[in-house]
Write a protein that binds this DNA or RNA. Sequence first.
DNA 1: GTTATTGCAAAAGTTTTGCACCTGA
DNA 2: TCAGGTGCAAAACTTTTGCAATAAC
Lengths: 158, 158
Amino acid sequence: MTKEQEHLQDILKKRLKEKGLKVTQQRLIVLQILAENRDKHMAAEDIYEMVKEEYPEIGLATVYRTVQLLLEMQLLDRINLDDGRVRYEIGHLFAGDMRHNHHHLICKSCGKVTPFEDDLLEELEAHIEQDAGFHVLDHELKFYGICKECLQKQKKES
Amino acid sequence: MTKEQEHLQDILKKRLKEKGLKVTQQRLIVLQILAENRDKHMAAEDIYEMVKEEYPEIGLATVYRTVQLLLEMQLLDRINLDDGRVRYEIGHLFAGDMRHNHHHLICKSCGKVTPFEDDLLEELEAHIEQDAGFHVLDHELKFYGICKECLQKQKKES
DNA sequence: GTTATTGCAAAAGTTTTGCACCTGA
DNA sequence: TCAGGTGCAAAACTTTTGCAATAAC
């Protein structure tokens, strides 16, 4: 287990205790799997399959309930790639290297999802706080289009 | 019917004919309802209920199929507010007043959704085309946070 | 007349829930 | 001990699909 994973686990344990909730194997393993799979945008079913390898008795419902809990504790980010399954990844607040906000480029041709790093949104968030009086906690930005590879494929074909 | 609504209908008729598809009452009415309800972020079920008032025989499946078709023809935008129902509105390309891109502010406290206009993303899209070689066709930007009213309510309570 | 389209019902897929049994504190 | 958590199965929802009947061109 990496240092970052230990750190995440400690935060989870602390927040669970604060709320009088219990530290269970299932909760620790779900968090662990997500930490080992940054930027993989995992759906509940994906997490379920991976957790089963380490803890075969787990139920899918537990994964859903755990993910919900981790979201509320702000340990996860939720992403929706419009394929009918909600996806999750370790929250950007807990990036070990304090990386930038990251967004998603979704190719309409091949479906590939690429992360894209950028900080430009901070300026926009400042506008929103000022103009609309809306206190921004989080954001989700997706770009739909055609990826480099598909563009090249299209060129060849024509 | 407003001038804009006639314009939308004409575009739909033209594009249907181009593709050898048929101009049906159902398609015209679904588009009409969406045009009458800009910025309402309507889910399929909402559209179905409103269309039924004018055309009671319509089926929910037809609404789903029509919305899919209108999306492909770029007459609609799709929005996902993470409540498990996909929503639709008349595409920003067809705003009568050539308004700016609009995004959504989603209040985590009361659930209210507010549109927010801004052009800042164009700069970012240029970056993406250049840095990642990704050709952007569309985007979706959502801000999660606490709205003005809920912030004031919180202040009073404390 | 021919082909696309529709409405209905059934199916598919994801997420939630009820409940008896367990487990962590 | 005992409140909170889990696994299972059933339920709840949204969205899609198959198909016979219908409407558009």
